Deep mutational scan, measured.
Amino acid sequence: HHHHHGSGALAALHAEGPLAGLPVTRSDARVLIFNEWEERKKSDPWLRLDMSDKAIFRRYPHLR
């Protein structure tokens, strides 16, 4: 159930192989992290948004 927010940013994801479903670039990863943060913020208003490279690598090590 993907609803768009204002920016309408869509992340490019790997379609197949071992990385299927994972973001292709760091900016794609940022979109995913932001979208998930927006969702989680509803139940956790104090949740901090962390889109640093460090956060991205921790989450998606293949982007190193």
Rank of each mutant, 00 (worst) to 15 (best):
His1Cys: 11
His1Phe: 11
His1Lys: 10
His1Arg: 05
His1Leu: 15
His1Tyr: 04
His2Lys: 11
His2Gly: 13
His3Phe: 12
His4Ala: 14
His4Ile: 13
His4Arg: 10
His4Trp: 15
His5Phe: 14
Gly6Asp: 08
Gly6Phe: 11
Gly6Ser: 12
Gly6Gln: 10
Gly6Val: 15
Ser7Val: 11
Ser7Asp: 11
Gly8Gln: 13
Gly8Trp: 07
Gly8Leu: 13
Ala9Asn: 14
Ala9Glu: 12
Ala9Val: 13
Leu10Asp: 10
Leu10Glu: 09
Leu10Tyr: 07
Leu10Val: 10
Ala12Thr: 12
Ala12Ile: 14
Ala12Asn: 15
Leu13Arg: 04
Leu13Cys: 09
Leu13Pro: 03
Leu13Asn: 04
Leu13His: 03
Leu13Gln: 05
Leu13Glu: 05
Leu13Met: 09
Leu13Trp: 03
His14Lys: 03
His14Cys: 04
His14Asn: 04
Ala15Phe: 08
Ala15Asp: 13
Ala15Gln: 14
Ala15Asn: 13
Glu16Ala: 05
Glu16Gln: 15
Glu16Trp: 13
Glu16Met: 08
Glu16Phe: 14
Glu16Cys: 09
Gly17Arg: 02
Gly17Thr: 03
Gly17Lys: 05
Pro18Leu: 08
Pro18Asn: 09
Pro18Phe: 03
Pro18Gly: 06
Leu19Trp: 11
Leu19Met: 08
Leu19Phe: 13
Ala20Trp: 07
Ala20Ile: 12
Ala20Gly: 06
Gly21Ser: 04
Gly21Phe: 06
Gly21Met: 03
Leu22Asp: 01
Leu22Gly: 02
Leu22Met: 11
Leu22Phe: 07
Pro23Asn: 01
Pro23Phe: 00
Pro23Lys: 00
Val24Met: 15
Val24Asn: 02
Thr25Ala: 06
Thr25Gln: 05
Arg26Phe: 14
Ser27Trp: 14
Ser27Ile: 09
Ser27Tyr: 15
Ser27Met: 14
Ser27Leu: 12
Asp28Leu: 01
Arg30Asn: 07
Val31Cys: 07
Val31Asp: 06
Val31Asn: 07
Val31His: 14
Val31Arg: 15
Leu32Glu: 03
Ile33Met: 12
Phe34Tyr: 14
Phe34His: 08
Phe34Leu: 11
Phe34Met: 13
Asn35Val: 12
Glu36Arg: 04
Trp37Gly: 01
Trp37His: 06
Trp37Glu: 01
Glu38Cys: 10
Glu38Thr: 11
Glu38Pro: 01
Glu38Phe: 14
Glu39Tyr: 08
Glu39Phe: 11
Glu39Cys: 07
Arg40Gln: 09
Arg40Pro: 01
Arg40Asn: 13
Arg40Glu: 10
Lys41Gln: 08
Lys41Met: 09
Lys41Phe: 09
Lys41Glu: 04
Lys42Asn: 06
Lys42His: 09
Lys42Ala: 07
Lys42Phe: 07
Lys42Tyr: 05
Lys42Trp: 06
Ser43Trp: 11
Ser43Ile: 12
Ser43Pro: 04
Asp44Tyr: 09
Asp44Thr: 08
Asp44Cys: 06
Asp44Phe: 09
Asp44Gly: 06
Pro45Ser: 06
Pro45Asn: 07
Pro45Phe: 04
Pro45Cys: 06
Pro45His: 09
Trp46Phe: 12
Leu47Met: 11
Leu47Ile: 14
Arg48Leu: 14
Arg48Ser: 07
Arg48Met: 10
Arg48Asp: 09
Arg48Gln: 13
Arg48Val: 14
Arg48Thr: 12
Leu49Ser: 02
Leu49Lys: 01
Leu49Asn: 02
Leu49Gly: 01
Asp50Lys: 04
Asp50Arg: 06
Asp50Gly: 02
Met51Phe: 07
Met51Glu: 03
Met51Ala: 06
Ser52Ala: 03
Ser52Phe: 01
Ser52Gln: 03
Ser52Tyr: 01
Asp53Trp: 05
Asp53Tyr: 09
Asp53Glu: 10
Asp53Ser: 07
Lys54Glu: 15
Lys54Gln: 08
Lys54Asn: 12
Lys54Ala: 11
Lys54Phe: 10
Ala55His: 15
Ala55Glu: 14
Ala55Asp: 04
Ala55Ile: 08
Phe57Thr: 07
Phe57Ser: 06
Arg58Cys: 07
Tyr60Glu: 00
Pro61Lys: 04
Pro61Tyr: 02
Pro61Ser: 03
Pro61Trp: 03
Pro61Asp: 02
His62Gln: 01
His62Leu: 01
His62Val: 00
His62Trp: 02
Leu63Val: 01
Leu63Thr: 01
Leu63Tyr: 00
Leu63Ala: 00
Arg64Ser: 12
